[in-house]
């Protein structure tokens, strides 16, 4: 019989302690961010989809070596290059110029192998996270075009 009453007493006490904690939490400042009205700044190393980096003249640094394409586990990157003649010191030389750089972001796992394997520092992660669409095609990025748009 004694156990019965002490059970009731201890049980009620534990419930009151719990209620005290939740009551105190009630008056703590709100920490939730009201997205999309408020947004947070992404940290410096946040990995968004990859983006081409331009040199001083605004041309892509990429030399179309294809290392990133080979390193990618999911085959997201497809690139192409054209050979153009340029004149250096009066001599005509052939140079590979990037003509296409497409990223299929639907398959990307943001692993960073492409960025790591590029010896020319030509790609980096963007801070883009507002990506939402009901169409798959919206995640096929033409990175060369995006670079031109940024330059313009």
């Amino acid at each position: 019989m004694g156990g019965y009453f002490s059970d009731i007493f201890n049980g009620s006490k534990s419930l009151l302690i719990g209620m005290g904690i939740t009551f105190r939490e009630f008056f703590k400042p709100t920490v939730t961010v009201q997205y999309p009205y408020q947004t947070l700044k992404m940290s410096a190393r946040f990995r968004g989809h990859i983006e081409l980096i331009a040199d001083e003249e605004g041309n892509p640094k990429c030399v179309a070596c294809g290392m990133c394409q080979r390193a990618c586990p999911s085959g997201c990157i497809s690139l192409d290059s054209v050979s153009v003649d340029i004149e250096v010191d009066g001599k005509v030389k052939k140079k590979k110029v990037l003509s296409k750089y497409d990223l299929d972001f639907t398959k990307c796992s943001l692993c960073g192998q492409c960025v790591e394997n590029c010896n020319f520092g030509a790609i980096d992660f963007s801070k883009e996270y507002n990506l939402a669409s009901t169409r798959k095609e919206d995640f096929h990025f033409n990175l060369l075009k995006r670079l031109e748009e940024r330059n313009a």
Binding site: S43, A44, R45, S109, L110, G112
Partner: peptide, 12 residues
């Protein structure tokens, strides 16, 4: 972890 790894769940 996001500040060091760049991801919140699926770290690489």
């Amino acid at each position: 972890l996001e500040a060091v790894t760049g991801a919140r769940l699926t770290y690489c």
